[in-house]
Design a protein around this nucleic acid. Structure first.
Lengths: 250, 250
DNA sequence: CAGTGGTCTAGACCACCAA
DNA sequence: TGGTGGTCTAGACCACTGA
């Protein structure tokens, strides 16, 4: 605790106060705290460092973004555990995964295409696509939200009579029946909108890693998934597997 | 401009003001502005929306994190262009890339291992590794910083007489001489520390996408690269290439 | 130099959680 | 119900950019 009592005396000029504060706090939580420990409340901490609460909060925000702290309204601020590895290549050898471990179907329906995919995914006769939304867990914690759009050119019809859960596995089975011709992935930073945020059990505006995967089959874009993972608690792992998967050095 | 003049009348309760503000601004910059346009200054904007400047700034911070705005101290706030695609699989079929297009060598030296890699990378006789730091450009803009650590078990010696630039390509050549046995990648969110931030031409604390790649050769961890990309302006693309690269559907 | 975004303060009130 | 983090305000000063 002592090491977090003060700011460095010889203030590094040009370094904003909130950044020095972050560094001091980071050192403190690494040395004097461990995963799950509760930090003093913001007002006390601010007083102890001799700064305004807003300044202290600025530092805490940084550390939360880095996944070092977990703050909960009404409760308190605790030291975070190490990030959870989310494997993106487990499903990886092709189509989206079907295994139900750590996955929960939210809904599966046929809906109008959202603007972004209109050009790549739209089937001829109509502008409808199948949409499967799933929530992904790891270590019993919500880590991400996965939204899979499937073109009707690939999976033409889907009975509405079947409940969402079974419709989901029906769709995935049909999808896997096709030969996958290509896949493309992109990762970028985003923020969770209201609904998304609720599913992730976080406030709106939370930073998320957005993984967009495009699947090609039958010579066209057959499906697209947009998966968002909590940036504070997740690390995305692309295990490019064993020796044989790689081209030998030339 | 008119659409950004006010907050929605029927304030969605439970939605914080800064979030409504973000949404209004986002709509405005999508409808009434285009890439490169300059926004009114923060004091004017705050007044126009009838909020405190801090609240307005909170909204702008969100939009900046999302890559929709670019704010520059002393200059102003402008609407950002689309994110730059950084291909991580171009080098991709194996060892770190050697091509010099869009790459600038910062330095190449033999240094003591940094704590994090001590266990995985350390060679027997000493705790020294080779370190190559490069800056990566795309469209003439700095997008990332790449730091490659190479075990001395794989590249034993490296003349200090040769200047950094040539030493770099010498090292890479030796590295590529080995057969690559495996590779592992992870992506997570981080923030740029002071020095890192300078290279990226951003203030400290800037959100970055951290890509950690581990290379296996000679039955051990031969090299590790830690690459950081500006999260606001970059999208990481993993082109998993053509049809043949994928396993046929079973 | 005037104008911009960046930092910091001191204080208020609110929404939520746990005892 | 008391204490926590979350939001918001009004104002000050600083550091930087560009004409």
């Amino acid at each position: 605790m002592s090491s977090m009592a003060t700011l460095p005396d010889e203030a590094v000029f040009g370094e904003p106060k909130y950044w020095q504060l972050r560094t001091s706090l980071l050192k403190a939580i690494e040395e004097d705290f461990s995963s799950g420990d509760v930090l003093p409340n913001e007002r006390d901490l601010a007083a102890r460092f001799g700064v305004a609460r807003a300044t202290l909060r600025h530092a805490l925000e940084q550390l939360e973004l880095e996944g070092r702290l977990v703050r909960k309204r009404g409760a308190g601020t605790t030291v975070a555990g190490p990030r959870v590895d989310v494997s993106l290549s487990a499903d990886g050898e092709g189509w989206p995964g079907v295994d139900l471990r750590d996955r929960e179907v939210i809904d599966c329906a046929t809906v109008p295409v959202t603007d972004d995919f209109a050009d790549t995914l739209k089937g001829r006769p109509s502008a409808l696509v199948h949409r499967l939304r799933r929530r992904q867990f790891s270590m019993r914690q919500v880590v991400g939200l996965e939204c899979l759009y499937v073109s009707r050119a690939v999976v033409p019809s889907l009975s509405t009579r079947v409940p969402g859960f079974e419709r989901a596995s029906l769709m995935l089975r049909q999808l896997r029946g096709h030969r996958l011709e290509g896949r493309h992935r992109a990762v970028e930073l985003g923020v969770a909108e209201a609904e998304e945020a609720r599913y992730l059990e976080r406030p709106p505006g939370t930073a998320v890693l957005v993984v967009t995967t495009t699947y090609t089959a039958l010579g066209r874009t057959a499906a697209v998934t947009v998966a968002t993972y909590r940036a504070d608690t997740c690390r995305l792992a692309f295990a490019e597997a064993g020796p044989t998967a790689l081209r030998p050095a030339s």
